[in-house]
């Protein structure tokens, strides 16, 4: 029983990590109808930028977080305008643009990884911050970072929810997400909205990178490994639903940890993928997703 509790605590904690990264993925999907396969690399770049800023003496960790958010968001907007503009405007779907976006995402992810290698090298870097004593839950000592991750995820969710439902700009974003052509006709500056959504999602990826960095070393390959788990989280929770992303993350974390605990642990990642596939086959909307977007 003791062991079961330990597994649950561990599963929840890693699930929150997946959920935080999944927030950005879900946002892009709900706003732009596309799945961005280079999101993992954006997360990785955010983490590296965070280290760079923290290394400047006198800058507190929180300042590095904000700084990384801004810079990564800007980088995201640049990438979207320069490369993805043709494809995001066409929207997702089974159109050539839809498949093109997926393929482009793979290409961008590989290219970004190489760019990061050229800038920062292949070595893993620790985060030069220390948060003091961990939190003791049962027999497990959880580093404080997990708490910060949970808090940040909830805060981000609340902020985004307020933004989307209570502000005019948020209304414009939702209009674009609903139907681009109609929004154009209604006078919404659709290209600007698209860039905004993409930039915000990339900023969220940076938040994830900076918060997860202290518990998981920063290294150029960290993005790919996180990406698939985050996709599983977004899918299970329901693509396009922000609370769903967090919930999905927790479900994936719990599921894979418990399976690893009671079955063969060497196949841990396979359990997460099986969950992803099963959910997609049985209930593509996931737990909290509202609309089944048959389009990509």
């Amino acid at each position: 029983m003791d062991l079961l509790l330990d597994f649950i605590i561990v599963g929840l904690s890693i699930g929150i990590v997946y959920g935080l990264v999944a927030l950005g993925i879900s946002l892009i999907f709900s706003g732009l109808d596309i799945v961005h396969f280079a999101h993992g690399e954006v997360y990785m770049i955010g983490a590296f930028l965070g280290i760079a800023i923290v290394s400047i003496s006198g800058v507190p960790y929180f300042g590095a977080l904000v700084g990384a958010m801004i810079v990564t968001g800007a980088v995201g907007v640049v990438i979207e305008r320069v490369f993805y503009r043709r494809l995001t405007r066409g929207g997702g779907g089974y159109t050539v643009a839809g498949m093109g976006m997926i393929i482009c995402g793979f290409g961008m992810s590989v290219a970004l990884q190489n760019v990061a290698y050229l800038i920062w090298g292949a070595a893993p870097h620790p985060y030069p911050v220390s948060f003091g004593m961990p939190i003791f839950l049962g027999n497990i000592a959880l580093p404080k970072s997990y708490l910060y991750i949970l808090v940040s995820a909830l805060v981000l969710m609340a902020v985004l929810h307020t933004f989307l439902t209570r502000t005019k700009l948020g209304l414009a974003v939702r209009a674009v997400a609903y139907n681009k052509d109609t929004s154009y006709l209604m006078g919404v500056n659709v290209p600007a909205m698209i860039s905004l959504i993409f930039g915000v999602a990339c900023a969220m990826a940076a938040v994830a990178g900076v918060l997860i960095g202290p518990i998981n070393y920063v290294q150029i390959e960290m993005g790919y490994l996180m990406l698939l788990k985050a996709f599983a989280a977004a899918v299970v929770g329901g693509f396009g639903s922000l609370p769903g992303a967090l919930l999905g993350g927790v479900v994936v974390g719990l599921f894979e940890t418990l399976c690893a605990g009671y079955l063969i642990a060497s196949y841990k990642d396979i359990y997460a993928f099986l969950l992803l596939i099963t959910v997609l086959m049985v209930r593509p909307t996931g737990l909290l997703g509202i609309i089944v977007k048959v389009k990509a």
Binding site: I14, V17, M226, A260, S266, D269
Partner: peptide, 20 residues
């Protein structure tokens, strides 16, 4: 005696079983 994938973020399931 178990294997994990290179880059695995969370080795705690293995370690919990080992602790027991």
């Amino acid at each position: 005696a178990e294997q994990f994938q290179e880059g695995e973020l969370d080795l705690r399931p293995h370690l919990l079983k080992i602790k027991a």
